[in-house]
Design a protein around this nucleic acid. Sequence first.
DNA 1: CACCTTCCAAGTCAATTGTATTGGAAACAC
DNA 2: GTGTTTCCAATACAATTGACTTGGAAGGTG
Lengths: 206, 206
Amino acid sequence: MPKRVDHEARRQKIAEALWRIAGTRGLDKASLREVAHEAGISLGQLQHYFAGRDEMLVFASNHISELADRQIRARLAAAFPDRPPTPYEMLRVCLRGMLPLDDNTRTGILVQIAYFSRAVRDARMREPARKGIPPLLAWFAELLRAGVERGEIAADRDLDAEAMLLLALADGLTTYVMLEVHEAERAAELIDYQLGRLFEGVPAPG
Amino acid sequence: MPKRVDHEARRQKIAEALWRIAGTRGLDKASLREVAHEAGISLGQLQHYFAGRDEMLVFASNHISELADRQIRARLAAAFPDRPPTPYEMLRVCLRGMLPLDDNTRTGILVQIAYFSRAVRDARMREPARKGIPPLLAWFAELLRAGVERGEIAADRDLDAEAMLLLALADGLTTYVMLEVHEAERAAELIDYQLGRLFEGVPAPG
DNA sequence: CACCTTCCAAGTCAATTGTATTGGAAACAC
DNA sequence: GTGTTTCCAATACAATTGACTTGGAAGGTG
């Protein structure tokens, strides 16, 4: 066997270059040449790692999902280094993590939007975006159930519905932040407003 | 003055051809040639009505907004031909009108998404999408205030917040319908769930 | 009729695209 | 060293794009 190269690492480097372009100039502008240039490699090299543009897009999509997943876990660990967070706190951190409150997340959302606008028309790109949602919803519902057991949430709530509402709310509010209808902080307040109605008697964090 | 042509009508015809393409193949595929062909005219003729691609896109964007506005008013008038609808009914019809419950609306949403994914990066396209939202929100809030006066909504609600929540919710739920996470009917149920919590003691429509 | 403005069809142009090909450098096995 | 496989740079190619030019048809005005 000849020249050994870490195949996966290269593909990730390329995916991150694609990420940068999609977040600034849009996914359409992420041509093979542009991505290669952004990654600091030649078109020939890029083609060696991806058979075609679509394959590159799909790989990058999956890569992004994993990164987003990892980031939200890191955020949770960072926010509560000493004690385990309450269900309310976990939910709040997760939902806030979806909002474009900082530049990094904002760029990530731009990339998500670029992919989303393709995913709604292309089943192949829809799959990766889809599959992460049900587990996330189930986890939200579980957190809410823990909230019920702690007596913080009324027992007659439809927890699956509430979980979906919170998720959709975060997404919808983000939409209007990106359209500059309101600020990201306003979106965060509204999340808190909805959360506060759910968790009765739980003091809102400062 | 020579040959007289209804300029505006042509531009609308072109905008609708663009609409059809953006809804099926995506906004990027809406090249001047493709739009011209879809509209059944020549490239030369299309260029006579729009100086460049961007101008065509902006015009079409505005045109779509007006159509959507008109459609929702028509829907309201059709749903309650005899008596004036209650605030609850008006809100419910409007919010349901945003969901992809039929093929027509679904296509419209695909177009909206195509535009949205450009608007988040291009201020020129963001403007038209933006400007319609505040009046809509104000109208929602006004409906909610009427609900408070009828004793259907608790007096201590933050009506501006509730209005934004409902709007964002409809958008977010639509997002997940398009990603095939849940059905449009489920989204409608969830809207009713949130509405039902707001309007206390108002019976849900069959 | 003559004229002049509006309208638009056809063609050209440079730029950019995804894909394919070719040739050779690099590195490991023997 | 020889060979063989992996890796990749360079180039070519057809297709598509937005923009522009040109020439003339259509039709109202005088």
